[in-house]
Nucleic acid binder design. Structure first.
Lengths: 350, 350
DNA sequence: TTCTCTAAGAAAATCGTTTATCTTCTAGTC
DNA sequence: GACTAGAAGATAAACGATTTTCTTAGAGAA
């Protein structure tokens, strides 16, 4: 591998000139032909500045850490799909870390956070390790941005407009003529969970419908949780004819639960999910969802983090454009008929 | 951030002693209490060696690059799930790169590959950028391992036993009593595609059935391709009663194609997919698949790459344990009846 | 002529580790 | 008493870039 000294020798100048030419130092004064010789030498030797040396000198490594609880979740994949190109564009590369590792494995934590292997962190505070990891990272004073969550001022974070989106989804069910509309909450004490429930309540109140907390169940971030959640809800004597599920994966599980309960979707039960990942289009029936700008959120998170690294103040961004919108597929429909729907299905449930 | 000199001062020794204690230098002779003082100082200052400085000195950065064409594909997520902990265990961290970036964006390429931002690369040679990226990386002589593909000796790679697994899947259809068994190939000129087709042929021959190349179609790595592939196959005058699809995502698309063609799975058409990602259990009907050790493959790829970095020779590994096995769900069943199945469904297709 | 100024570039310090080579001290040997 | 051999550490030289400070040569001014 050619070093900057090799390039300098080849061009017949000193190393400092090479560096300053390459980094576009505005105070540099050189003759045009010298500059040309440097550039030619760089090309001839196929020179690239050594990553470690530059990082050492600048005390900036040029990498951002991304820590999510579960790579399998397509929602994170979507956020990642927005974040990665944004990082590239800002001159950074993403590094992958597991949130649990960061919280529990001291070696990883020391190497990555304290050792300066990353310039900043993108965090999805979720799952078991959530609390612990934050407690540990915060004192390290490393720039960090929370993904997919509203946070308060000393910290930075980026969220989507969950309340509006949840209301939109619920309103769609209302518009179809449903009156018994359930909701499967995301687990956890976070803004996602609260805002989506609030949106559900907003739409019900707006329509003059009672907010029935007996139709509020718990979903989660995996299909199994959605399955259990809906199964419980369906055991209710006056079961819902429609349900707004606060996550795609839980919605997929909910579809299975409906099937196993002998209910046909959307005839006996309408289901609307949250987040339009590719998956939603390929389950049966294709899932109606509310679409939020996940990739935009990833992009924005990177922007804020890079700003933070550059010394700018903390920001709490709410990504509102493009606005949440409905993507209607085949899992939602009007109730069979205002009255018979309910009794018919109760029979089916035996 | 505390540096090694701070620790040395605190412990009342020289920096070299701190380094050698921390790195377990076998030639080091120090008194026990000195060692204890060093360790205490490290703890007191919460010292972690600076990543960049260590990388510069050792000319090893401690990161492995992972370049895959598409983050959304759950198969890559599964490989990643095996590779990430393995990397941690070997003392490395994974860095994420996009294959297309690497192939086209000169900046990324220079920074990541030539600049030494990674010690080695895990590559899934697939998609549009496949050829180009290899052409560019090869001359850089950076250690690299190909994922999910059989390669020839100068290069390293790790594959799973595609031929055996494909035969296993096809044999399952044969055992159910099917005789017209189609196959949707993966696209591309790679061992995955060839081996899976070969396994399909193996099982047919073994059962004394003709290998009907008219029942060979093209799937791909996305649902849409599987949809198109199966739709074409179903247009055949003597359509298959069962089909082995060479990828999960294509299989999901195939299910939709069958539905749209008015066929019920598995009654009119059995479908078996490839790779048991979580998704397979949550489509309708739940997909029978052949399960291969994807996480094990990710783990093994990391092992080989680390060996390569340590100067050991190239290896071509075939991950055969755990052996491929069937995971039977609801998408496969015996044909309706040896004869009527065929005519009945032809009618349905009108 | 001497001095000053500027253009054009060279030198040198520095970032934080690692590691090969030196030093010092003590105890034992002849 | 001089010498030697370890034990226990200290010194110093890299690694490859960036950046601040110096140098030099020539042009113009006084």
């Amino acid at each position: 591998m050619a070093s900057i000294t090799d390039v300098a020798r080849e061009a017949g100048v000193s190393a400092s000139i090479v560096s300053r030419v390459l980094n576009g130092d505005p105070t540099l004064r050189v003759r045009d032909d010298t500059r040309a010789r440097v550039l030619a030498a760089v090309d001839a030797l196929d020179y690239a500045p050594n990553h470690a040396a530059r990082a050492l000198r600048r005390s900036q490594v040029g990498t951002l850490g991304l820590a999510v609880p579960d790579m399998h979740n397509p929602v994170y994949a979507a956020i990642l799909a927005g974040a990665r190109p944004a990082a590239t564009q800002h001159g950074y590369v993403l590094m992958l870390t597991d949130l649990d590792d960061l919280a529990s494995d001291t070696t990883t934590f020391r190497r990555v956070v304290r050792g300066g292997a990353v310039d900043g962190l993108l965090l999805q505070r979720d799952g078991a390790a959530a609390g612990r990891v934050v407690e540990r990272i915060a004192p390290a004073r490393i720039p960090m941005v929370f993904l997919n969550e509203r946070v308060r001022p000393p910290t930075s974070g980026v969220a989507v407009d969950d309340r509006t989106a949840a209301a939109l989804a619920t309103r769609h069910l209302v518009d179809l003529g449903h009156t018994d509309i359930g909701h499967l909450r995301v687990r956890g004490r976070n803004s996602r969970s609260r805002d989506r429930q609030a949106g559900w309540e907003d739409a019900l109140k707006e329509a003059g419908l009672p907010v029935r907390h007996d139709l509020l169940g718990y979903g989660g971030a995996v299909p199994e949780a959605g399955y259990r959640g809906l199964t419980e809800l369906l055991a209710h004597p006056r079961r819902p004819t429609a349900v707004f599920v606060g996550s795609v994966l839980a919605a997929v599980g909910a579809l299975a639960a409906a099937r196993d309960a002998g209910l046909s979707v959307p005839d006996d039960l309408s289901v609307i999910g949250y987040h339009d990942t590719w998956l939603a289009d390929h389950v049966d029936p294709p899932l109606s969802v509310v679409r939020l700008p996940l990739d935009e959120m990833g992009r924005e998170a990177v922007r804020i983090l890079v700003d933070l690294i550059d010394g700018k103040p903390a920001q709490q961004a709410l990504v509102t454009t493009p606005a949440p919108r409905l993507v209607l597929r085949a899992s939602t429909a009007p109730p069979r008929s205002p009255r018979s729907a309910r009794s018919a299905s109760r029979t089916r449930l035996r």
